[in-house]
Design a protein around this nucleic acid. Structure first.
Lengths: 211, 211
DNA sequence: TAGATTGTTAATCGATTAACAATC
DNA sequence: TAGATTGTTAATCGATTAACAATC
């Protein structure tokens, strides 16, 4: 029957992604069992947090042995949706956008990039890995045609919302926002931000405070 | 005299970085005053959160007018340490590391990249922008000589801790970790993580759950 | 068996939101 | 002045940690 599929808090989901990559690396190393204390140590958490987090899953550990690495990897993959294949496009073919399009960490995990766009005509037609840069006006056509799930926004701050709107009207389901600007989207579209520039500022503050 | 310099929670610091970039963009647009409600709307927060956050600063708004954009920008910059000049190096000259080294968002804000390293001999000597890729074994020398503050780790997961250790023994003060692996560092070294791959997984989950 | 480790409940801690008097 | 907006206190909400009985 399985456990009631209650919604899992976002704070927990974020750690689940880390548990998954950890399980995959343990699996590659031939480790079969892992305890909550092991996971906590490697990831800088407490064992209590780990057990609390894993209790959201329809999966049980075994007293005295811990959790099956492969079992946990599978359940985590299923919950996170990482077992599926996802289609993504990158908008913005600058340094960062191009690097992402070539980043093989993604495709290796089922996140396939099937298009890269820029509004700069001089870039259109150039190659980024095996992809050809297309003009931003092609976004709606490509998204609909290839049923693209995720759009990665890697454009200057002032262009971010415009690009997002284009993605949204074309039927995108999720946006990874790398731009230095908040994106407003309807509830049916998921948005996740990652900004290196704000992280660097956070780091600057931490350093300043520490010494 | 100013307000007692109590330590500001990390959750607040993270939003302060966003307020700062917002202030800079308003300033560029010639806007002089902004209310907590304005800020909240643009950034997807509540005005209550914004006021609560700003109350940590030694800076006051004015009833009926709001906050001075330039005043707030200055105070935020000072608190975050963004008014200073910072020296950074990038470790890992793959697609991502190279893109970061060329990313002008950083240098424009006083975060100056003064070196890029790789352990692959075939990459050493090649140019990335105006920088020349150096061998990873040069890290300690460069960090000490140029008093580098921040190291950006953009290497494969299994190399991350090794690179971090090198940075740490060389006297680095902060690490931005882009690798898919937790970094363990002594308390005097600040570590901030940003991982696109885990963000993408979080997004996959959000999409799956939403529909 | 004895002891290690889970799963879960309860306690603590921290962060966000609501509310409103003060004030410009 | 009247009304908009701050600054702050108190209430709520959520996340983390502690503790321990259950169990393999």
């Amino acid at each position: 029957m399985g456990k009631a599929p209650k919604t899992i808090p976002r704070s927990v989901i974020r750690r689940l992604t880390r548990y998954l990559t950890e399980m995959q690396s343990l699996e590659a190393g031939g480790i079969e069992w892992v305890s909550s204390a092991d996971i906590a140590d490697t990831l800088g958490l407490t064992s209590s947090t780990v057990r609390q987090d894993l209790s959201h899953l329809d999966f049980s550990g075994i007293s005295k042995r811990g959790y099956s690495v492969s079992g946990l990897a599978e359940v985590l993959g299923k919950v996170l949706g990482v077992n599926a294949e996802w289609r993504m496009v990158v908008v913005g073919a600058g340094h960062l956008g191009s690097a992402i399009a070539m980043h093989d960490d993604f495709s290796r995990r089922g996140f396939n990039i099937c298009g890269i766009f820029d509004s700069d005509h001089s870039k259109v037609g150039k190659k980024v890995g095996h992809l050809t840069i297309q003009h931003a006006r092609e976004i709606p056509r490509v998204i609909k045609r290839h049923k693209v799930d995720i759009g990665i926004v890697a454009v200057p701050a002032n262009a971010a919302q415009g690009v997002a709107d284009m993605l949204i009207v074309s039927g995108i389901r999720g946006i990874l926002n790398l731009a230095l600007h908040h994106i407003i989207a309807p509830a049916r579209v998921a948005v996740v931000d990652t900004r290196m520039t704000t992280s660097i500022m956070e780091l600057a503050h931490a350093i300043k405070t520490r010494s």
